[in-house]
Design a protein around this nucleic acid. Structure first.
Lengths: 193, 193
DNA sequence: ACCTGAACACCGTTCAAGT
DNA sequence: ACCTGAACACCGTTCAAGT
């Protein structure tokens, strides 16, 4: 085991976390993985395909985390709140991975599309449970999922970019904002106050 | 007029729109502006400072657009909805500019910080008017602004990345999602349905 | 099938000059 | 003060070889 392919993926993920996508150089990956600077080309079409493979692997890990959180939650609404907290904490701690998974992909990749789609459907499934539990919750789970994903994604991206200053009055971190939205969806009036 | 500095900024903005930040090469900028490939260094510290200057200029243009839209609106709530539509349309039509202005900035830049801050405050001012007009609207304008910005930003970024497929059931474009949130904030129950 | 080393066409940035 | 051309240290990618 511990194939060269896996060593290359590990090296790429490491470099990504420490220096961002531009820091993932094929030469650096090769050195870290103990192979030549273009050995990666025997396993991945090019740098973009290598990063896509890193993303697919991380999507699987995230899906596993989600399942564990849902299992331990006391209620669907509790699961939703725990998922949001976990997702935000993961993104803030791993900004480059977050951007890799949920940012724009330059090229279409079937495996990546499927990994993202499966993860999204798992989330919609959880929302179905919330709707049944919470009176007055919106009917359209796909649309509510899109709204929650948009707010969480935007809050994270703005916070990472420093556009969501938590200092001074009115400061709110991503978790606060998503909690506000969940309150609104639950029917509590004047949630952000 | 038409200083070399402006010609360099125009060239950089052009290249950005057509090929993204990686497509903004100093050599390309120089050629397009009719100067050598390192003349830009006499006007900007480096490539990052050049892009920051492009962003500052675009922030000013956007602020002017905002003012015009607010002037023409029939009510504060109408102004908010029109602003959201305009912002989303601008971002979807100019994805690289959107990412440049609202994505992460690698380095701190005073002019950029001020341009973004001024634009944000203008938006908070508009929300104050909405709160007065709409009964039941949340009290904390800064926080409501953050929530609206997060949702719009996230919806745009996900849509640009193809993560918000409008095909199939449950599809929703960014404008729909922001409208849903405004409905929720306005007190309409079960908005997304 | 998997890997290597040399090579090519790019980059951003620096520097010694020029006006 | 503003600009240029050569040069340096990088990149991603390709290719002819090697096992």
């Amino acid at each position: 085991m511990a194939s060269v392919r896996d060593a290359i993926l590990d090296a790429a993920a490491d470099l990504l976390d420490h220096s961002g996508p531009d820091g993932v150089t094929l030469r650096g990956v090769g050195e870290r993985a103990g192979v030549s600077h273009n050995a990666p080309y025997k396993h991945f079409r090019d740098k973009e395909a290598l990063l896509a493979a890193v993303a697919v692997r991380e999507f699987a890990v995230r899906r596993g985390m989600m399942a564990g959180i849902v299992e331990q939650a006391a209620s669907p609404l509790g699961a939703l709140r725990a998922l949001a907290r976990d997702h935000i904490a993961w993104a803030m701690a791993n900004p480059y991975r977050f951007h890799l998974l949920f940012g724009g992909w330059t090229r279409h990749d079937d495996a990546l599309d499927e990994a993202a789609g499966t993860t999204r459907l798992a989330f919609v499934d959880i929302l179905r449970g919330v709707r049944v539990q919470v009176a007055g919750w919106p009917e359209d789970d796909e649309r509510t999922a899109a709204l929650l994903m948009a707010t969480a994604h935007g809050a994270i991206d703005l916070a990472l970019g420093g556009h969501l200053a938590a200092d001074g009055k009115g400061g709110a971190d991503p978790t606060d904002l998503v909690d506000d939205l969940i309150d609104l969806l639950s029917g509590a009036r004047s949630a952000p106050a």
